[in-house]
Design a protein around this nucleic acid. Sequence first.
RNA 1: GCGACGGUCGUCCAGUUUGGUCUAGGACAUCAGAUUGCCAAUCUGGUAACCCGGGUUCAAAUCCCGGCCGUCGCACCA
Length: 488
Amino acid sequence: MNTYDQIIQLSLERGFYFPSSELYSDASAGFWEYGPNGVKIKNKFLELWRRELVRRDNMLEIDGSQIMSKNVFMASGHLSNFTDPVVKCKKCLSSFRADKLIQEEANLEVPERMANEGVNELISKYGLRCPLCKGEFSPAERFNMMFKVEIGPNHDEAYLRPETCQSIFVDFSRIYKVSRGKLPLGIAQVGKSFRNEISPRQGLLRLREFYQAEIEVFCNPSQLDNQPRYDEIKNTKLRFYDQKIIELTVQEAIDQKILSNQLIGYYLALLVEFFDKTGIDKNRTRLRKLSDEEKAFYSTIAFDFEVDTSIGWLELVACNYRSDYDLKSHSTTSKTNLEVMDDNSKVLPHVFELSLGVDRCIYSIMEHSYFVDRENDDRAVLKLKPYLSPVHAGVLPLLRKPEFKDKASKLLKNIQRDFDIFYDESGSIGRRYRRLEEIGTPFAFTVDHQTLEDETVTVRYRDSMQQDRIKMSDVKSFLYNNINDYSS
RNA sequence: GCGACGGUCGUCCAGUUUGGUCUAGGACAUCAGAUUGCCAAUCUGGUAACCCGGGUUCAAAUCCCGGCCGUCGCACCA
């Protein structure tokens, strides 16, 4: 069994995540739910993201609507760029992207957003037939990747957002004013986005409803090489991929023109330093510059932060320099001036974004943390960072006798409001340790015979399986010190 | 969306070829009890499943049709 299957199995067995609506047979693909352990690791991951990016750089966090008006997506370009013309073969029912089909079969450059009528014309003009069975095509239809919703009794047209960042752009002007912002300014948001994928696959890796944690950095395009606190990160090493991996400091990458300015370098460095603390193996990550064909329609410079997994390289974060694409088009569509004052001059800010796929990160962290200990009965251990572990510690009475249970529940009561603690008195002590380490619990406190004499407990460490004794009264500070240890 | 293959306790698998003995079996996990008392021990007992809908048949986990889901390939992937 490969690692991907092991993680799926662990997730199902231990309640990290599982398919949505699975009780019913009409449940469709691409929707998954986080169970109790999954929610805990997700929340802790997002707290780490806030710590290492949002708070570190004094960003502002908002929480926008998931349903947004049609005009938002007219302006953003999603209504025209997010729909593909599709034709179906009447005979074998295969469907094709019409623009690609015409391009290949008739050797014509066809714009993606060509109207259906244009597509139909070209198909009949060149007498195109199904490449698989030579059948005739039905008229072109649009496949829109956005979920359309209707609002109120008049069925007003609106959409579920396909990326969280549109509310950041739409809200930018107000946020900038009310928070007395200064460029460069990061605005962050965590939330659900929705895309009607044609064929979602592979659990958390390709979903129709998924979490994004996005950061939009608004900046003055004339100040990109005047980045505050640049010195903090100029020697941070980044791993670039172009045929092979090249490790360079931010400054070296700028000198070699791989990065075009300090601002991009600064935020890529923050991102990389953040991922260092997630437990994802740095040596299995890379920054890949996207070619013009791969880039999103709004992007002028694009890097993907990717991680190597058992099923190949996976894109975790899309880093796009969106220039003034969004603010300009929202400004035009809404007929509102979105310029702001910076250094006594009016400027329409440019945007650099770090768009992170939360669900993929959770999967990657689990996979990179999964460890089978060949020297100890092949025990399965999730070597999560203590601050990301769903359960911080176990509290275990060695024996199921009243005097042990009393001490244990006293300890539990003392710490369970500050930490995620699992109390377990069933089964042998070894079995209980194994259950805890399988979900990544870094510490276990065992109430044993000696506890009754001197009020100390055993601390057992997940990775080394070693044990120490500490005073019961010191357990809380032990946890504060060890759970909050972010030095990697 | 197309094609191939698959879907049975929480998990993994047997049973489907050749319909009946399947009142669906095992392993691991889980629960209760006994025993032990610091690393998945042992014993006893329990809970727990044929993806959904329709059809063929005296009889369907097994055969047929449709749907859903999964894996892989093609296509798609802001």
